[in-house]
Amino acid sequence: MTAARWQAAWTVLVFLFILTPIASLVVFSFNADRFPSLPWGGFSLKWYVAIFQDDSVRAGFWRSLRVSAIVSVLATFIGFATAYTDYRYNFRGKLPYLAIAALPPTVPVLILGLGMLSFFSMVNLVGTLSAVIAGHVVICAPFAMALIRMRLADMSPDIEPAAWNLGASRWATMWSITIPWCMPAILAGLAITAAVSFDEFMVAWFVSGLEETLPVRILALLQGQVSPRINAIGSLVFFISITLVAIAQVITPRQAR
């Protein structure tokens, strides 16, 4: 049927649009020419070499890695704690509690960045990676919370009481039953929050000062002339993020639809 054909073609176009910037960047990062365009200038690795030798890029890269590692652990912990509290307890004020925990993704990152800049300058933390970490955890925790909450919803409501009933205290139950059950979601949460933090530039831009993370470094480069190094950096960033997200997707147990 032609109608279905057109629809399929349209769908392919939409996906092409979404994937083109990624693909193009990766392809051109191997282009020997200074300006990434056609005709093709020949295959080369020189841009990758250049960025590995660039101190500011290397420094930004390591900072981003450190930040995302710490952020993923903190954000996943907070996400777990919040998801568990939602699962296990009913209390007055639960709705505002959940709203506060879930709201950050709805506030534009720009505004979060501005707010955090103001806040951290009051406490003299602007220009530190701690400020970046604090801000990132706010943004990333809701993702971990959502993943873990979904996993908890699949745990039979009798399981924890059964463990208590058999003599396990709440801490013992948490350790030997609840956390093992949630482990796929916890791991996926770690991966996703690491990815989000690694790519996050807005809050980092406002708050990191001279301690630039990699995305902030990219932003700086962006404001200048087109530089082929960005292709190489960008491809590397893509590679890391895509790997993390792919891991999360593979680990997350999904119900058959």
């Binding site: 009798d158 059964a162 463990a163 208590w164 009933n165 058999l166």
Partner: peptide, 18 residues
């Protein structure tokens, strides 16, 4: 608390640890 009572229960849903 339940973990100090020593009265194990057999559940309708079995509640086996999956």
């Amino acid at each position: 608390p339940p973990w100090e009572r020593d009265m194990p229960m057999v559940w309708q849903s079995y509640a086996l640890f999956p």
